[in-house]
Structures are given as structure tokens and as C-alpha cells.
Design a protein around this nucleic acid. Sequence first.
DNA 1: TTTAGATTGACAGTAACCTGTCATAATAGT
DNA 2: ACTATTATGACAGGTTACTGTCAATCTAAA
Lengths: 162, 162
Amino acid sequence: MQNMNQQAEIFTNLILELFRLNGVLLAVGDRLTGPAGLSSARWQVLGVVEHGPISVAHVARTMGLTRQTVRQTAEGLFKDGFIVYADNPHHRRSRLMELTPKARAALDYVAQRQAQWASAVVANHDLASLNETFNTLYQLRQTLETYEETNADETQSSESDG
Amino acid sequence: MQNMNQQAEIFTNLILELFRLNGVLLAVGDRLTGPAGLSSARWQVLGVVEHGPISVAHVARTMGLTRQTVRQTAEGLFKDGFIVYADNPHHRRSRLMELTPKARAALDYVAQRQAQWASAVVANHDLASLNETFNTLYQLRQTLETYEETNADETQSSESDG
DNA sequence: TTTAGATTGACAGTAACCTGTCATAATAGT
DNA sequence: ACTATTATGACAGGTTACTGTCAATCTAAA
């Protein structure tokens, strides 16, 4: 099958390009948020807390990250005065994160910078291509996640190791 | 400009999708390479060394990573017997990494698994969409990198902070 | 030849993700 | 009410990326 080699090559190129783009986007995020005392990771967490008081575990689920990762980010946000913890009426240990005025100001600042940046960047691309790209990537992720769920057991079961 | 808001939204969605896809791909890479004693990062480095003896700094430039990051990965690869260091006739300190038979076997194993995986995944997508997506992402990265080079100075100069 | 600059490997430290483990707290089942 | 399970925060440790700094080395210029 000649076509399969071609597909595999295009697919590999696509993956490598995704990695590079990911790196660039993280750098951009840090540049946009840095002057406000934030980072890409902190910004994303605050973006969830912005919608209302919420626990660390809940944010983790929302963002698709682990509890521990969000906890670490939250620790830094608290230490730097971007969030406070409020008592949770439904759970004694699991307190709720809330934005401080400092965080509100930082988010407003970053939002303005991000909009400015997005406008400038997007001006060079047409709507249809971006939308189509989004759709393809979304479908690709669905395929990958389905495939992983189906085949992960067959080769990754390291339960007999311990 | 009504169109600008729409573009900004699609753009934001695209970025979030890129982050998610990146996470999934890293997980897949680790799953495919794990049984061979490798990881996504190690696999990529070995993929460069595979083409011939090469220094750490050269691999870093090839991959678009920092010298120090590749050095750390190389350290692990050496410790686990995947590479050896050969003298560099052109530079006394900068030795050249070379694959060991163990690495050769691991790469062959991973290549087979990766091809199998890629075939299965790609079967659900058509060549044209993947290719078009690659092109859009490539162009987008070019735009981003150009924009960063042009505007990075204006807001990121934190020299007056210290 | 000697000096100035760039490159390189090494080392230290940081950020952001991960897993594993533990005690505590909430919830479901009996 | 009691027990088993689940959810949560805390802590330890590992991976992969980054920056900064240093001495050694190579290269180019004077």
C-alpha cells in the first residue's frame, strides 16, 4: 500500500508540528501573563476560579489535570496573594478557592493583552482554515482517545511488575 | 468588527484543542516507548542520533530544545546503556553520541509499534484533511514566531525590575 | 601570538506536569 | 449504626522542559 506510507509520513509531520506549536504557544502564554505575575498554568487555573468559588479537585477535573498538579499551582497562587481559601459548607477539608482583587486586576490585564495578541495573529489567517483545522484536530483527538481506551491494556498492563 | 470576535473565539478553541492533543500525544508516545525502556523525550533524541554520531549541542539545535535539556536526556540514555560517547576529532570536549545495540533494538521495536498505531489511527482520517491541517498549523507557527520576534522586546524587557 | 568572542559541557535551580502513598472526610451499602 | 468505598488534601519523588552561571575549548581578529 503506497498510500499508507504517504499517510504515515504526513501524520508524523503533523505530530512534530503540533509539538513545536505547543512549545511556541506556551512561550507566548508566559510572555503575555508574566508582567502580571502569572504564568500559563496559573492563568488557566485562575480562569476557572474566575467563574466562582471552587475546590482544587474540581478545577483539576475541569482542566483535565491531576489533583496534585493543580494543588501545586494553587499553592503558588495563594502564596502570592492571587487566591484565598473559603470554607466549604459541603466538605470540611476541601476548601474553596476565591479570587483576590489582585487576581481580578491581573486577569483583566492579561485578557486585554491576549485579545490584542490574538487579533494581530489571526489577521493573517482566514476563518475557514482555522475552523477546519480545529475540527480535524478535535476528530483526531477523539480517534486517539478511543484507540487508547481500547488498546491501552494490551501492552501497558504493568500490574504484574510490582 | 463582528468578524473579529468570531475569529478570536475560533482561535482560542483551536489553542485549547492543541494543548489537549499535545497531552494525549505525549501519553501515547510514552505508552509506545515505555516497554522498550524509553520515553517520548528519549525516543526523539535517539531518533536524531540514529542518523549518525552527533554532539549534544547539535541535537539540541536540531530538535529546537536547549542544550541543557538534551544533555539531561542524554545522561539518562547513557546511564541506561542506550548511547555511548565517542571522541570528536573536531572538538576535545564535545564528544559524539552513538547508538548501542540495545538502542538499535529498542528503536526497531518502537518503530514497529508506532507504525502499527499510526496505521490504525490514520485509517479514520483522510489524507487531504491531515495535510491541510499540517499546512495551517505550520503557517500559524510562522505567524506566531514572526510576531514574537517583532514584539517580544516591547513588553518583556524586565531588565528594569531587578 | 595573543586576545576577544562564541560554543560547549557541567552544575544549580525553577516550573509544570506526572505517580504513589497516606490520613482524613464524605458517602453508599448493609 | 457500622463498614467499605470513594474523594480529598498533603507530602514525597520523578520527568521534561526552562534559565543562569562557570570553566574549558574552539575560532576569528588584531
